[in-house]
Each structure stands twice: as C-alpha cells, then as structure tokens.
Design a protein around this nucleic acid. Structure first.
Lengths: 256, 256
DNA sequence: TAGTGGTCTAGACCACACA
DNA sequence: GTGTGGTCTAGACCACTAC
C-alpha cells in the first residue's frame, strides 16, 4: 500500500480550506483490517493472520501492522494472545462476565443471571425506535421482552428492539435454548456483531405492569438504562430499554 | 536503568509458584514517571521533559520512553500535544466539560452548570465514610453540600466527603469564589489531584429534605451516584454522593 | 523446535508550534 | 529554523504456546 498510497496529505490542487488532514500509514492499515472484519473474512473467535504475514500482504513493516492492531485491540475489536495469535473479539465466550452488562450485586460474586423470556413479537417499529435504529418508515421490528433473575428474584426487565430484516427466524424459544450471552447468539446465528454501545441512564418510577414483573411496589424507583448498540460502521442494530431494580444491585462505572 | 535493572524475571532461587512474572523496561520507566508525578516534580498543566531528554536521563531509547508515556496518556494522566510537548493532565482547564461529570441535558448544549454551595462542615467521619476513605477511627472529615442548577432549576444535590487533614482551610466561601471545576481548586490550592474514580449508580426515592432542595415531589425517583475518587497510588480522597433529577437530564455512558 | 506476539534499539524523516 | 511529538523501518532478541 505505501507504494500506491503515500502517507502524505492528498497531493492535489491548491490547498483546500479544512483539507483532508493527513492519514498515517497505520491508520490506512487499520481501515483495511476493519474492512476485512466487516466483510466477514475473519469470524468472531477466529485468529487473524500473523503480524508478519499481514506486514507482507500490505507491504509495510511489522511495526506498522502492530500499531494498527494495537488500536483495534484497545477498541476491543481484536484480542491479542501472546504465543497464540490475534483473535477477533466475540461475545460468545466471555467466560467471566457479560461484556456490556454493568450491573453488579451488592454482595457476592458477579455470577451470571437466570434468563426468562417473556415474548418475541414482530411489529411495525414505533416512531422513536425507528428513528434510533435508522429504519425506514413502517419497517418491521422485533420486540423481545425478558427478565433477568438472581437468587430467585427478578432484577432486570429488558425490552429489546431489533430490525426484523437482520434477525429472520428469531423466536423466544430459540433465545431460551441458547446458553450464553444473547450477543453470542446474534454473532453465530445472525452474523450481527455488537461492537460499541451508548447508554442513557435515568431514574424512573415503576408502572403497574413493570412493578408486577419485577415484584416491587408500583412507583418504586428503578434504574432506566436505554442502550443503543452498533455494529461495524457505527450502524445501530439494537435498542434496548432496561429497567433495573437497584435494591441489591448497582450499576458500576469507571471514570478516568 | 537497564544497566542496574535487567528486564528479566527476578533471577532468584527455585521457581516460585505464581512468580513475580516479568516487568518490561517501559513499565519500569512508567513507574518512575509516575513517582515523579506523585512527588510533584511536575505540576498539573506543566510540561514534562521531552522524550529525548527523558530517554537520556533513564538511559533508554526514545521508543521505550514513548511507550511509557503512551500508557500514561491513555490513562489520562498525561496529555500529548504535537509540536509543544507532553503535559500533566489537569482539571483546572477543562474548557469544554467537567471531566468526571457524565450528566447531559436532554436538549441543548452540555454547558456548565451554576453552583450553589449550601454548607461546609467539619465533623467526625461516619463509619461508612471513614471506611471508604480509609480514615482512622474518629478522624475528622469535611462535608460539603451543594446543588447544581441549569435553567434556573436545581438538578443535582451533592454531598462531598473529604479527609479534613488534606483540605485545611476549605470553606464554602472559598469554594463559591473559585471559578471552574472543584477538582481544579483541589489541585491548585490543596495539591490533591483526582486521577480516577469509581461510581455506583442506583435509583432511589427522594426524601423530604432532598425533595425540597431539588424542587421535586417527595418520593420522586432520583439517580443516586456514589463516587469514590482516587489520587496517585489509588489512594481514595473523596467520597461524593450525588442525587440527580433525571427528568430533563441523563447520565451517559459508553460501552465497548 | 517453530511460530506467535512482546520488547527494545537506532536512525531517518514528517507534521506541528513558535519565535 | 529549532524543538517537540508522530510515523516508519529493519533487525535483534525475549516470552509464551503448542507440538
């Protein structure tokens, strides 16, 4: 690539205002790797080619490939394992903890929670959901509802909105049968990889229906967690509205 | 340093189980830089010596210093500025936004908020506060209470607990006079730098006193944000209990 | 023993800020 | 122009994993 694509600012005509800046070689390599990931050349959990091989393929030094991979690794798209190789990140084998779940119990270990699926319906996406998921007007969406339990008590009620076009054949049964994180099933069965998400968190009062499902009094304060998840290319593919009972759990966050 | 401190695993006796592992040179350099930061050799906002100079001082290559600085920069302890130098991170000149405040308004720009200080009292630390701040039994603490306002309405009520020994002379007046982030004042006036924090978030119901201060109905759901902030060496130096009215604001978070 | 990622070096050159 | 961080290279060697 360095032969065809000099790392300098695009040499062309008189200087444009707010020009194209400057793209380091390793950023170009990173973009190429990203394209391969997006194109499915390497699947989640698989190893990508070795640094030396990639360096040969792209005609750059190993150090340059390294820097590209470094950035993808800090973004959690790749995982390096010394002596073994570099692997595509996956939600399907997060042994310890669900990667995106920030809920921790006040006491005891942060073990997995029991999942109960309530229903999985196909319907026209409401306006706000359609907007968040960038669906065309009237496009179909799936609504999955489920609860998460710990110690025989419900803690979380999730409403999960998905573009129906991407998840053909998804049913509550299929969800219930799959062991492991939901995002793992999305990867292996529907080829949808969750890369990044934004959450908006508020405190709300439980309505009657929610109160019953979470076994709390109506009006009880609940944590409302609205998550918008994205795949490659920052494409939104899931809108998840969670209500958490934070009597014996809390949402943890790190600031730096 | 590489002369006196070979980067190999500590050569000593028969292999211990779970041995001391192995410390790369750049990690040792990083530790030395950290010590200088902690010791106040370079103050927040100041430039540290150039990479070349540090390389000379430590007798390592520029690349090794670079990697050490890289890590400190991604941890937000240092800030690199091309062409100018590398600077010690500071809360005192965060022009855009308070670094640790994750509260955003539903609409409009995330501008600064108006601060009203209610009081600043010195007292014996309650047991839970003492435990969190690692204070000795009966050691004195400061309790600062304040509200944050936007658009002539109160949004946040903070209870801020500080070790009295570190903040001699802190008063509500002094806080009110200082323009800019509170952590900026802590840096310049008390030489306490906030590096990292953990937050535990829950939904709670407003009690009578809180309801009045935040101008909401008693029992209204509020976001409870308990923040434990640390300086160098992971020493806890602030326990902050915030209650946020999330009617027109939300707590934002990024997952990856 | 071979292959992979991880560390370290030395040197050349580029982009940016500032005087 | 000088000094700073940023990029890129080529090569040596180390640590970990697997066979």
């Amino acid at each position: 690539m360095p032969v065809d694509l000099p790392p300098h600012t695009d040499a062309d005509g008189p200087a444009l205002p707010a020009g194209p800046a400057f793209s380091p070689l390793y950023q170009q390599i990173k973009a190429l790797l990203l394209k391969s990931l997006q194109g499915g050349e390497w699947k989640p959990g698989e190893a990508i080619p070795s640094e030396l091989e990639l360096a040969g393929r792209f005609k750059v030094s190993q150090g340059t490939v390294r820097k590209a991979i470094d950035e993808l690794a800090t973004e959690n798209l790749l995982v390096r394992r010394q002596g073994k190789g570099t692997f595509v990140a996956t939600h399907a084998e997060e042994q310890i903890q669900y990667r995106f779940l920030r809920l921790a119990p006040d006491e005891g270990p942060s073990t997995g929670m029991e999942r109960h699926f309530l229903d999985c319906r196909r319907m026209r996406a409401p306006a706000d959901v359609a907007r968040a998921l960038a669906l065309k007007a009237g496009e179909q969406a799936l609504l999955v509802r489920r609860t998460l339990w710990r110690n025989q008590a419900p803690v979380v009620l999730d409403e999960i909105w998905l573009p129906a076009a991407l998840f053909k054949g998804l049913t509550a049964d299929r969800l219930a049968q799959y062991a492991g994180p939901m995002y793992g099933l999305f990867e292996t069965e529907f080829d949808v990889r969750m890369i990044r998400a934004e959450e908006k968190i508020r405190a709300v009062a439980a309505d009657a229906a929610t109160a019953e499902l979470l076994q709390v009094a109506q009006g009880s304060p609940l944590l409302s967690v609205e998550r918008l998840s994205h795949t490659y290319g920052d494409k939104p593919v899931e809108l998840r509205r969670g209500l958490y009972n934070t009597i014996s759990h809390y949402y943890r966050n790190e600031l730096s």
